[in-house]
Design a protein around this nucleic acid. Structure first.
Lengths: 155, 155
DNA sequence: ATTGTGTAGATGCGCGTGCAACGTCCTAAG
DNA sequence: CTTAGGACGTTGCACGCGCATCTACACAAT
């Protein structure tokens, strides 16, 4: 694929548009495969996996609902229901926040940590096979630098 | 960001994992902004826009339901309902397929083409501002080459 | 203390989606 | 011609999500 240098703004070449479309398709496709793996092997949706991961990486395995919602790209109400389900399955618990009576912590349980540990190899293998292994080290570095430009808010 | 060369398979460095996470977040974020633009300015969901685009680029502005579903990454039933809505709004019509009585064409109407033409500047501007303009020509080329490796099935 | 403004999280509701099942139609094997 | 197996599109159903709204609480100004 050759990109004509229409870097002067105002118009978009069809090749540029195709890059965006391919990005969309690749991302959706990989994500769906990943989620299918987790669902089949561990009965865990991708959003649930993300929640467990975020909690496991947080101090005391806990996070305020609001913070957690932001990190997993969910609305507050969406996270409320997701935590409902995870709590029903015993993977997460709700705990009051002493310093702010409005606040709640979502806390990872031992069962949740175990479930996460079981699922993580599946997750990592999926990403490795479908993403990391397909690119070489240079490409990965380029990818990282592009992403920091595209998404400066990232940690 | 520095990536250690753990290109030998089997393990994944945390830096590599972060690249994937950033990709997820960037893609979701840009897509949501894009969809919000289309929704606010043209009352058009992204999936609807994609359908109209695919139809407009197809011979005789028509596509079999099945083909269309694949192109817009929707299940058959999902596309059935989406076409229902678009037909209700007069942007698309269903037409029987003479050579195969099982088949149906989704056909772009004049109103649909007009609506697409109205919405396209919004769409292009969104992609330009949030994606294309952020990267330079070299980066876009690299991106394209990575994507063809990640998603070989693309046209 | 009181009042007003803002924030945290939960809930009612509607929407869009996928899966499984169904009817219809095609096609190849006998 | 008949029949079996598959393909195409639609429908019933349940699920997950976001928006608007609500309650409870925090904090600052008076």
């Amino acid at each position: 694929m050759t990109l004509t240098a229409s870097e002067s703004r105002g118009t978009i070449s069809s090749e540029e548009l195709v890059v965006w479309r391919m990005l969309q398709r690749a991302q959706v496709r990989i994500t769906r495969l990943l989620e299918a793996d987790l669902l089949v092997e561990h009965d865990l949706a991708l959003a649930s996996y993300d929640v467990l991961t975020q909690l496991s990486e947080s101090p005391d395995r806990r996070l305020r609902m609001n913070d957690l919602a932001e990190r997993v790209l969910l609305s507050r109400s969406g996270l409320t229901r997701l935590i409902d389900r995870l709590q029903r399955d015993g993977l997460v618990e709700r705990e009051a926040c002493t310093s702010d009576a409005r606040g709640l912590f979502a806390v990872l349980t031992d069962a949740g940590a175990l479930r996460l540990a079981e699922a993580t190899p599946t997750y990592l293998r999926g990403i490795r096979d479908r993403f990391l292994d397909v690119l070489d080290g240079d490409e990965l570095r380029q990818c990282a630098s592009m992403l920091t430009k595209l998404f400066p808010e990232a940690e």
